[in-house]
Design a protein around this nucleic acid. Structure first.
Lengths: 192, 192
DNA sequence: AAACATCTAGAATCTATGCTCTAGATTATT
DNA sequence: AATAATCTAGAGCATAGATTCTAGATGTTT
């Protein structure tokens, strides 16, 4: 076997950089140029541009989930949810490339038209998160209703994401975490 | 003179529909097909794809501003700001095509690389809004600081937009306005 | 060292889509 | 009706960028 000069992770790193700069308009040629490889070498690792981007997305989402779940392991459920909300912002600040890569797709749409080789991974990537959010909804409210389930999702995930989104391509203001926590606190209170 | 079979507005309507379905990946051919015109007729009205999309964006933004400013004319400044926040959601719900079209560009980036014919319009389109938000910041807080200015912008604009964004391609949940108002109220309170 | 597997190289091909071009149709004006 | 201005038609051109192909390099195994 030959020693790989260009690793999968190396290519994904380059792709992430390019995504940070050009969004979903990334070109294979730019990624290749950035790692110093010819485009052919990219296709040796990934079957298509689409497949490459999905792999990048998966890697970034997994990295985020680690931080996000850690923030959600706090005992007190309210604090856990607010910690998760805050971690969306701090992760974006600390890992802008991953944050930009995560914005390439939305899971729901991706499952439907993704290369077969990735479908399973994409389909289940959020399972653990959903489970934890359900638990926390239970702990926070006692009796869980549909509305409360949704409030939890908005407070801990969708809302914070909405607040950071404008800053995915710039840098995150230092006061943003406080804004997110205040907002999410208010949203959770709507369920009481 | 010949009577125009395909009007500017008609083409933009078709483009808006296409944007609602395919986002920024709209193809000229699809727009043409939807109005029943050959692609050449599109180019008779618009110099380029870019120019067409910018015109569409401008039209949608103007329509939104009308609703948004109306909501902000309320006497009480806190109520005015919350009304504006809420109108972001209701406008998106009631005019999904325009909402999707507005998401095509962000003004700040657009000014820099827009066809010359649109630059002026793009550059000044937000002026009236900024003016009104400044007034309201003054009325709401008395002494205006940089932080308070930002809180107002987030509470009345960026935040609400973040909350609706996930629903630009689906339909807006009926409970979303209440969530936005709760959130924005909390954000404004951070300035007290 | 011979045979093998894997990886790199990068030119060549394919494809999608924006855009141009010229002929002709349509309506207003005189 | 003649003329002019504007608009439609839609085939064809141009280009960007993804993808493929094949020769050769590089390391591994026996």
């Amino acid at each position: 076997m030959a020693l790989a000069k260009f690793t999968t992770d190396g290519i994904l790193d380059a792709a992430a950089e390019e995504v940070r700069n050009h969004g979903s308009a990334v070109r294979i040629a730019s990624i290749a140029a950035r790692v110093g490889a010819p485009t052919g070498s990219i296709y040796h690792r990934f079957g298509s541009r689409e497949e490459l981007l999905v792999h990048l997305w998966l890697r970034s989402v997994r990295r985020f989930h680690e931080v996000y779940l850690a923030a959600g392991r706090t005992e007190d459920p309210e604090k856990a949810l607010l910690g998760m909300a805050e971690s969306v912002v701090t992760f974006t600040r600390d890992h802008p490339q991953d944050a930009a890569s995560m914005a390439l797709f939305r899971q729901k749409r991706l499952v439907e038209n993704t290369p077969d080789s990735c479908r399973e991974a994409v389909a289940h990537i959020n399972d653990e998160i959903h489970e934890r959010l359900s638990e926390l909804a239970q702990l926070r409210y006692g009796r869980v209703t549909e509305k409360r389930r949704q409030l939890v999702r908005i407070a801990a995930a969708d809302g914070p994401y909405g607040f950071v989104r404008p800053y995915l391509w710039d840098s995150v203001p230092e006061w943003l975490p406080a804004v997110v926590v205040a907002s999410s606190t208010a949203v959770l209170a709507l369920g009481d």
